[in-house]
Write a protein that binds this DNA or RNA. Structure first.
Lengths: 250, 250
DNA sequence: CGGCTCATTGAGTCGAGTCAACACCCGTGG
DNA sequence: CCACGGGTGTTGACTCGACTCAATGAGCCG
């Protein structure tokens, strides 16, 4: 059960260097790589982790049309993925919190189909995909884990699809907040207090709404006593109200 | 390069029985399983294909919460996937045409998270997923192919996300038609004439529109000379017009 | 023929977008 | 120290695209 991680930090010169960290020490291991593999297998897995580095707000993990080489595990901070349309307008396609894996699009084309940039100072673990595939062939549970991860990604997209095509603006906001709360809870954090790493613009963009609408709904939710809002600090006061508002589950 | 398929048909009594068909004979092989594997490997792959059967319109491949055992390749006809919300309302999550693989959600939960039913008489090839995983460990190109398929699925969902959150009703309809045309073309069929396998209700549901809106847009596209519409028979007369309408690509 | 489901068309309403103004925070620089 | 500017967030007034409700038509099957 000894899981290990290659976590990468930069020295004072800005160059990156590797620092090994045991997955046991990483609070994210149950979310990120909940594997039951032997020690020697873990060493193999650990060996393929590569040149991570702490990224400042707004730095890119990769850009659309970059050759696809790796997927990334968010270790701290937060990352958004997005695509640019021909006219250059941005579409946010996802938010990634610690313990989550980003970059699994692009496998089919050998190029990333979206870009990923940090929303705040973040650190990530890079996992070269080719070597991950090799290793997956040898470790069935690892193969299954990644099939499973991608499957979950598809599921999440389906949920979002439903949200966007059927639900009101209120429901979309409520749903996003509940999703973030749930993901925080998985990592052992509060399910009621949260700090949104993304701007209102990103929220609006992601949910297909206007910024003004997002802002108005936050204020109204506060008036209705569902939330306490202070900028990006949110407290969920009335989970029922938030859900019942528009027939959301949980 | 000899690819084989297990295609299943029913006899006159309605019982199913297996009939082997070479993948070489299957016009879908370049889309469905474009693999370069050895003959012995192909035999292994072929051996895991199972109890397919021709399904009549409205029959289910699987239902939400069924144990997840297999994925399915559509051989002929058309299939839609959907989920039901708590209140029992349907959300169509995808349409699957010949050569496409359905059922890859549910890997992570061991249960299907959506249902899949045929839109017309269809035949499918069932591929037990557990055995597919085993085989994937032995055949790296097969493993990569399935990672790739799932990656493509994620990409498609992202496209849809953009469509639903940013684009007008006109653009959504145009985009769906162009997508179906493109997928037909991949199988060597016409890129301008198509027969929609799904109802206006399914289209509306999938795109997050009201049926009336879909109907009105079809009529208007016809008036504008973009389309010739006759029920579910569609001819694309002015591709540019259809795209230029709302800044869609190709 | 009735009884379906599917599709089209019209009339009126409303949710969310647009446009515009302003408040706030923060770092920079005079 | 304060003035300035840019990014971010809020609020109000007006508009419009798509939904709802309602009626009718076309095809299909028992």
């Amino acid at each position: 059960m000894s899981r290990k991680y290659l976590h990468l930090v930069s020295d004072s010169t800005g160059h990156t260097m590797a620092s090994r960290t045991s997955c046991n020490d990483c609070s994210l291991s149950p979310i990120c790589l909940p594997l039951a593999v032997s020690l020697s297998e873990l060493d193999q897995l650990e060996d393929i982790m590569r040149r991570g580095r702490p990224l400042k707000r707004g730095e890119h993990l990769y850009r659309a049309s970059d050759p696809f080489e790796s997927v990334y595990a968010v270790r701290s901070g937060a990352v958004k993925s997005y695509v640019l349309s021909e006219e250059g307008e941005e579409q946010v396609t996802g938010f990634y919190l610690p313990g989550e894996i980003i970059g699994m699009d692009g496998i089919s084309t050998a190029h990333h189909m979206s870009s990923a940039k940090t929303l705040e100072t973040s650190s990530v673990c890079e996992i070269p995909f080719g070597r991950l595939e090799e290793l997956s062939s040898k470790i069935p549970t690892l193969q299954h884990h990644f099939f499973s991860l991608m499957s979950r990604e598809i599921q999440a997209d389906r949920e979002l699809h439903m949200l966007l095509s059927k639900k009101s603006a209120d429901d979309r906001i409520a749903s996003l907040l509940l999703s973030i709360a749930a993901r925080q809870q998985r990592r052992g954090l509060s399910a009621v207090r949260l700090r949104l790493p993304m701007s209102r613009y990103d929220i609006a963009n992601y949910l297909g709404l206007a910024v003004e609408t997002v802002s108005r709904i936050f204020t109204r939710f506060q008036q209705q006593g569902f939330l306490a809002v202070e900028g990006r600090e949110i407290e969920i006061l009335d989970r029922e109200g938030l859900c019942g508002n528009g027939r959301l589950r949980a």
